[in-house]
Design a binder for these strands. Sequence first.
DNA 1: GCGCTTCATCGAAGCGCTTCGACAGCGACG
DNA 2: CGTCGCTGTCGAAGCGCTTCGATGAAGCGC
Lengths: 346, 346
Amino acid sequence: MATIEDVAREAGVSISTVSYALSGKRAISATTRQRVQDAATKLNYLPHASARMLAANRSHIFAVTAPLHPDTDHSAHMTFAMEVTKAARERDYDTLLLVHKDALEGMKRSAATSLADGIIVLDVDAHDDRAALARQLSCPTVFIGIPEDTSGLVCVDLDFEAAAAMSIDRLLDAGRTSIGLISHPEETLVRESNFPLRFRHGFEHHAALRGIDIAVANPTHHRAHEAIAELLELKPDLDAIVLNTNIDVAGSVTAALAGLGRSVPRDVAVVAAGVTFSTLRFPVPFDTIPLDAHASCSAAVDMLARIVENGESPPETTLIPPTYIELGSVARTSVTTSAPVTAPAT
Amino acid sequence: MATIEDVAREAGVSISTVSYALSGKRAISATTRQRVQDAATKLNYLPHASARMLAANRSHIFAVTAPLHPDTDHSAHMTFAMEVTKAARERDYDTLLLVHKDALEGMKRSAATSLADGIIVLDVDAHDDRAALARQLSCPTVFIGIPEDTSGLVCVDLDFEAAAAMSIDRLLDAGRTSIGLISHPEETLVRESNFPLRFRHGFEHHAALRGIDIAVANPTHHRAHEAIAELLELKPDLDAIVLNTNIDVAGSVTAALAGLGRSVPRDVAVVAAGVTFSTLRFPVPFDTIPLDAHASCSAAVDMLARIVENGESPPETTLIPPTYIELGSVARTSVTTSAPVTAPAT
DNA sequence: GCGCTTCATCGAAGCGCTTCGACAGCGACG
DNA sequence: CGTCGCTGTCGAAGCGCTTCGATGAAGCGC
C-alpha cells in the first residue's frame, strides 16, 4: 500500500503539504493541490487507518451497543443497527458492533483504548446500566431511546407521548368513542424497555385530558386474539384499537377481529403507533404513526458527530415529532358520516 | 488515560519490559511480571488501540459484510452478525459492520487502510461480487456460505446437500413415500442466494439416488397454503413435507395443512431443514435440521483468526455436518407401524 | 527601497506502542 | 579462573500520520 511519503515523492512536495492538501486544513495553492490529488489517485493512496488515528487522536469509529434480549424484535434491532451504520458512513465513521453482555464491558474498553470516538446506545431501558456508565465515561455518547433519568446524557427518540396523543385525537376526530390500546408483551414491559412505557403513559395522560375512558391489554404470548378479547371484555362497545406492539401481534389483528365478528375499519378502527414495521402488506393496512429508524438514527449520529468534531453540547433530550400515515383503517363512523360533508365536526 | 510509560514508571522498569511482561512475548522474571501487572491494574491501564495497531501492524478488528436485500430475513441476518461478533470477541477481535451498498466499498476501504485484519462475508450469493474482490484483496477473508466458484477462497457453511439427504432418509425410514419440498421465495432464488440452491440440488440428487419422485414449490408471497396446495396438486398422495424456507412460511404450515384437512404428523410428516429459526413454539413443533449460526460463525471466525495470526491456509471449503433434532412431527406411518416393532424396516 | 504582512510550503516533533539488538549478570564447564 | 551461553532487562528505532512553528517569496504602503 502506498504511504503519504510515496505520494509526496510522486507529487514533488513534502509530506506535510500532502497532508494539508488532502485534508484542506491549511491553504494550499490550487496547482499544488491538484498535483497532490493526482498523485494520490495514481498511487491509489488511502491513509493508513491506525497511523491517522494515532496522530490525530481520532479513530473515525463509533461504537454501537445493541444488547439482545430474549424478547428482542430482531427485525427492528437490525434495522436500527443498519441505520446507525449508514448514517455514520455518511459522516465518514465506521461502526463497531457491541453485543450481548459485552455491551457494558465493550463500552468501557472502546472508550478506554480510544478505539471509538463516540458511542451510540440502542434499545434503552428505563433503568439502563449504560446510562450510569455513559456519565462517568468521558467518551461522547448518544442514546436512541430515553431512560428515566436523563441528567448528563444526550438522548434522541420519537416523541412517543405525542404519538399516543395523536392516535387518540385522530380516532376521536373520526367519531370513535371507545378506544383500547394493545401494548407490548409482558416480557418487554417487565424489563422496563423505555418506549412502551412512554407510549402508554402518553396514552393514558391524553385520554384523561380529552375526557375519555380507555382500556389497555398486554398480550402475554404475542397472541392478538387474546389481547382483543381482553379489550372487548373491558369495553364491550370497543370501536377503535391503537397498536403499540410488535409485528406478530399487529399482523394477526385483522384475522383475530374477523374471528370475533368485527371488521376493519367498519366496526373497529385501527392505528399502529410507534411501530417500526410497515402494515402495507397486511390484509387491511393500518394507519401508522411510524417509529422511523432512519430519522432517529441519523439525528443521533449527527449529534454525536457534532459533539466529537465541534465539541457541541446538545440538549439532554431531543424528541422527534410524530407523523401520521393514512392507509384507510380509520373510516369515519356512520354517525359522523351522516353529518353534512361540508361542515365536519371539529 | 494511563500510558505504558506511566506503568513503567510505577513498576520501576522500562517501557519495553512492560510491553513484554504484558504480552508474554519474551521471558520476564516472575517478580517483575507481577510488579508490572500490579502497576497496570492500579493505573487501570489499557493500551491505546491505535498505537498498538500502528506499532504491531494489527488492528484486532474484523470487518463483517452483511448486505441487506429486500427479501432478507432480518432475524437470521441479525443472528449471524451477532454470532460473528461474539465469536470474534472470544478471540479478542472487535467487529466492524459493513452494510448495504457499502459492502464492496467497505471491504476495499477497510483492507486498504489496514483498518481490519480480516473480513467475514455473510449472506453469500452464487455469483457474489465479493468473491472476486476477496481474491484480489490480500486481506484474509472467510465466507460463511459458498459461492459457485470457490477457487482461491475460504468458505464455511452447513452441508446443505447432506442436510437435504438426511431429511429424505429420515422420512423414507419413517415409512413416508411421497415427499414435497417447500423452498425459499422466488425473490431469494432469483438473486441466487447460495444455500437454497444447494439444498434444492442436494434434495433432488438424493431423491434420484433413493429412487423416489419428489415435488418442489417456491412460495411467491410467503404464503404457506399456496405452496402446499401447489404440492398437493403435483402429488395428491403427499405424506411428507420438507421445509427449507423462511419462518413466515414455516410458521403457518400447520394451519395451512389443517385448512386443507390434513394433520401433522398423522397425515403429513414435516421436517424443517437448513433453517435458522426454532419450531419449538409452533402449534406442532417440527423435526429440525438446524442451520446453526453459532457453529458456522465460530468456525469461520476461528479460521480467520488462525489465518491472520499463524498464516495458516485452510481448505477452500469446510462443510459442517448436519444434526437432526426430533420433535415429533415425523411419526411412522400406520403401514410401517403395524410391522413388528422389534424388526423395523431398514 | 525598506520593513511589514500574507501566503504557500517545509521540517521536525511527536502520538503510544512493539520489537530488535545489545548487554549486564551469572552459573557451568574445562 | 577465563570463557561460553543463558536469562532478564533496557534503549532506541520505527510504524505512518498530523500539526506546530519556521521560513522564503511575494505583495503592499510610505
